[in-house]
Amino acid sequence: RYTFRTRGPEQMKRVVEWARRQNLSYRVEVHGDEYIIHAE
């Protein structure tokens, strides 16, 4: 189980790509310009 905090969509997309390659399920929360990605 991982939690990532990123700023801006570019970093968020990179984390999502990584999670997909690992076959993890993930969800993204948006708080202003901060993205929180939960993957497991």
Rank of each mutant, 00 (worst) to 15 (best):
R1I: 11
R1S: 12
R1W: 11
R1D: 05
R1C: 15
R1Y: 11
R1E: 06
Y2E: 02
Y2F: 12
Y2W: 14
Y2G: 02
Y2H: 05
Y2D: 01
Y2K: 04
T3L: 11
T3F: 09
T3S: 06
T3P: 02
T3D: 02
T3G: 02
F4Y: 05
F4Q: 00
F4I: 11
F4H: 01
F4S: 00
F4E: 00
R5L: 07
R5D: 02
T6E: 03
T6Q: 02
T6L: 11
T6D: 01
R7S: 10
R7M: 07
R7I: 08
R7A: 07
R7Y: 10
R7T: 11
R7E: 05
R7G: 04
G8P: 01
G8N: 15
G8H: 15
G8Y: 15
G8T: 15
G8S: 15
G8F: 15
P9M: 14
P9H: 14
P9V: 15
P9N: 10
E10K: 10
E10A: 11
E10D: 11
E10I: 09
E10P: 13
Q11G: 13
Q11K: 07
Q11I: 11
Q11L: 09
Q11T: 09
Q11E: 13
M12R: 03
M12T: 06
M12V: 08
M12I: 05
M12F: 10
M12L: 11
K13L: 14
K13S: 08
K13R: 14
K13Q: 13
K13I: 10
K13E: 12
K13V: 07
K13D: 05
R14T: 07
R14G: 04
R14F: 08
R14S: 07
R14I: 13
R14D: 04
R14A: 12
R14P: 02
V15N: 00
V15W: 09
V15G: 01
V15Q: 01
V16R: 02
V16E: 04
V16H: 01
V16Q: 03
V16N: 01
V16K: 03
V16W: 02
V16L: 12
V16T: 06
E17M: 10
E17F: 06
E17D: 11
E17T: 06
W18Q: 01
W18D: 01
W18V: 01
W18F: 03
W18H: 02
W18L: 02
W18Y: 03
W18C: 06
A19Y: 04
A19G: 00
A19M: 12
A19P: 00
A19D: 00
R20Q: 12
R20T: 11
R20F: 05
R20H: 06
R20E: 12
R20I: 15
R21I: 08
R21V: 06
R21N: 10
R21L: 11
Q22E: 08
Q22F: 12
Q22L: 14
Q22M: 15
Q22V: 06
N23W: 04
N23E: 06
N23G: 15
N23V: 03
N23K: 11
N23A: 07
N23F: 08
N23H: 11
L24W: 09
L24I: 05
L24C: 04
L24K: 03
L24R: 03
S25D: 09
S25G: 05
S25A: 11
S25N: 12
S25V: 13
S25E: 09
Y26D: 01
Y26S: 03
Y26M: 04
Y26Q: 01
R27H: 11
R27Y: 14
R27D: 05
R27Q: 09
V28M: 04
V28G: 00
V28A: 02
V28S: 01
V28P: 01
V28L: 05
V28Q: 00
E29I: 12
E29Q: 07
E29H: 07
E29A: 05
E29W: 11
V30T: 09
V30A: 08
V30Y: 09
H31I: 14
H31W: 11
H31V: 14
H31K: 11
G32F: 06
G32S: 04
G32M: 06
G32V: 04
G32Q: 06
G32N: 07
G32E: 08
G32H: 05
G32C: 04
D33V: 07
D33E: 11
D33S: 09
D33A: 08
D33L: 08
E34K: 05
E34Q: 08
E34T: 12
Y35W: 10
Y35R: 03
Y35G: 02
Y35C: 03
Y35I: 07
Y35V: 05
I36W: 12
I36V: 12
I36M: 04
I36K: 02
I36F: 07
I36G: 00
I37S: 00
I37V: 07
I37D: 00
I37Q: 00
I37M: 03
I37N: 00
I37W: 02
I37G: 00
I37H: 00
H38R: 07
H38S: 06
H38K: 05
H38Y: 15
H38L: 09
H38E: 07
H38M: 09
H38G: 01
H38F: 14
H38A: 03
A39E: 01
A39V: 15
A39T: 14
A39K: 01
A39L: 15
A39Y: 08
A39W: 11
A39P: 00
A39D: 00
E40Y: 15
E40M: 13
E40N: 09
E40L: 09
E40K: 08
E40I: 11
